[in-house]
Design a binder for these strands. Structure first.
Lengths: 199, 199, 199, 199
DNA sequence: TTTTAAACGAGACGGTACGTCAAGTCTTAAT
DNA sequence: ATTAAGACTTGACGTACCGTCTCGTTTAAAA
């Protein structure tokens, strides 16, 4: 049985990597709007056409660059489930806090955010490929807690996830205050307090 | 934004207005990155130099344009206080929901958001001039409720405000779901549930 | 003018021609100082950068444009030598008179003159490439006459050429009088009279 | 009969002088095309409007500036007439050579030349006010020599003047060779040789 | 193993917008 | 009423990138 791969993978992987790396570096250095395909090509040692051949816009390049990053360390599809909902969510929130305080991550994510704000199609893809998956993972953990009776039965789990993570992301984006584990804890405690069954 | 009005602002007010109006219109039409000072000047019937004379960047122009808008209708410095915290906050949240669903507001605010993400100094100014003021107004209402015993004494009021409004803003920015009064109500109810005194 | 043709002149000849043509036309229409690279590019249907890529200034463009003109019809490297010096020089002078009275030539040469007055380097190049060559051709004819005994032995031939052609060019530049064959003849006769061997 | 002095407007003579001085300086420093009214006004400590009120163009300002210079030292209306034509003309030519080699004079005169090449009306005025007057002065001296029998009777005196001064001016403008007293002498001797009565 | 077609680096091209400089006009305040 | 100052609209400057389009030159698959 010969090659079924006959399709068209005649693509230079080294160039692809160089482009994504350069895009990420430059986004961190100069920000999204000053990021230029010309500069990416130059930094990557690549012809401009090689970028235009495989990506429709600088937003798409940056998107792939961040996606590549995230895909590496994000093989996990579930949250820990120790039975203690608050502890499990705290673990995740603290990890998020750490990321948001990492300058490299901060800058490239801000650039990506701009890209997504500017390109609705890309934003949809981002949701489909990353955001929604991560959302579902958290929702699953809440559902498990709901079944265990730690969360009220009538709670809208989508809203619940957003209540726990939304304030943190919002503070990060607007820099309206420091991103600390304590802040995350406060949000988490209060939110869970509101979600708990009454009676 | 510069506004050294005191001395002698030999400045053409008509041009200033035309520039802000044009900036807002164009930001709504083409988005932030495709917004150009050249186009603003043309639409406003103004020389480019008149823009560069008074603003350092297109971000600053857009900032002032949005600021002018907000300053007009935002003379109010307090939230309604009927004694019913949930009802009062619902009023504000529903107004916010209405704004976020207005295409004109949506687009210019998204553009402004990009501007603020790209220009840290401007973001600081935005917080000082608008965000913080609005935050304080909401915090005041919560403080009043806390004094009335409707909110637990140990609650961090900054976090409380962010819990009520953060998820909504986040859903708007990331388009992770529809912005409806019902969604706002769900967040509000759950959040207040968590904030209420226990016992 | 740059013309490193040897290696790899990945250069669009059609654009080059269009630029030179447009430059010449516009110089004739609006004069040198009102001539703009922007207008040349527009008239030639070319991006500005294409001009800046190959020429350092509008003076250089105009220079090349005139050079191209002159190179075409100026293949001749010698003056006629019928043995009658006065007749031979008269032929050349009358041709010059005709050119100077041609509005098209007049205007572009005046523009070029301004360009050369403003750019010393270009002026040097002009002398090297055109003026000196033409000067030598005339000097050669005078030398031949000197050998034939029609011009005094101690005459400085450079000065002689300038005496015959200088007054004409000067009258043209300063518009101090009409440029006629008769005027040229007067100068020529008197000059030759002064150059003839005495005895 | 009241004041007949109603003639000229109340014009600030100090500003006028400052403008002409600044124009001359700047023309010498940066050349004609880079000379700007803005810079003249700044250097002269004068409002731009004051220049525009009294002159129609930078060419006119420069013209007046040079005119003022020339009028100062050019009160003389005749050439010396010692009876020795060659000696008298040599005096004048050597003075001209000295001027042309003075960098300040050289640069401002080159700038003025550009101005005159670009503005035909100004060129006419220049001829009327300066060039023609100087031409007549020289022509007068030649006429005197003609009457004394040192110049042939049938000589066209206009052409004669141009033969003596044209080559020098032309060499200056085109920088086709050094401007030396010896060169001037050669031209003068040869020209006078051609102008002398034959027989 | 040779052929051959794509992907590649390089970079010129027609354009748009940048941010700056100066033009010439107009307004204000001081003399 | 003239001036110094300087804001205004206009237009050109020279530069940076855009996205498209050749150029030769690898390079890896099919022949």
């Amino acid at each position: 049985m010969p090659q079924t791969t006959a399709e068209r993978p005649r693509r230079n992987e080294k160039s692809r990597q160089a482009i994504l790396t350069a895009a990420l570096q430059l986004a961190g250095e100069v920000g999204y709007t000053k990021l230029s395909i010309e500069a990416i090509a130059a930094r990557a040692g690549v012809g401009k056409q090689t970028i235009y051949r495989w990506w429709p816009s600088k937003a798409a390049v940056l998107f792939d660059a961040v996606l590549a990053l995230s895909t590496n360390d994000a093989g996990e599809t579930t949250l820990p489930d120790t039975g203690d909902l608050e502890a499990d969510l705290r673990t995740v929130l603290h990890a998020t806090v750490r990321e948001l305080n990492d300058p490299g991550y901060d800058r490239s994510m801000r650039s990506l955010t701009v890209a997504l704000l500017e390109d609705e199609g890309l934003a949809a893809e981002y949701r489909r490929n990353l955001a929604q998956r991560m959302h579902e993972v958290k929702k699953d953990r809440l559902r498990s807690a709901q079944l265990a009776g730690h969360v009220a039965e009538d709670v809208d789990l989508d809203a619940a996830v957003e209540m726990i993570f939304g304030p943190l992301m919002n503070r990060w984006l607007t820099r309206s205050g420091p991103i600390t584990p304590e802040y995350a804890d406060t949000i988490l405690t209060t939110a869970l307090n509101g979600l708990r069954p009454r009676g």
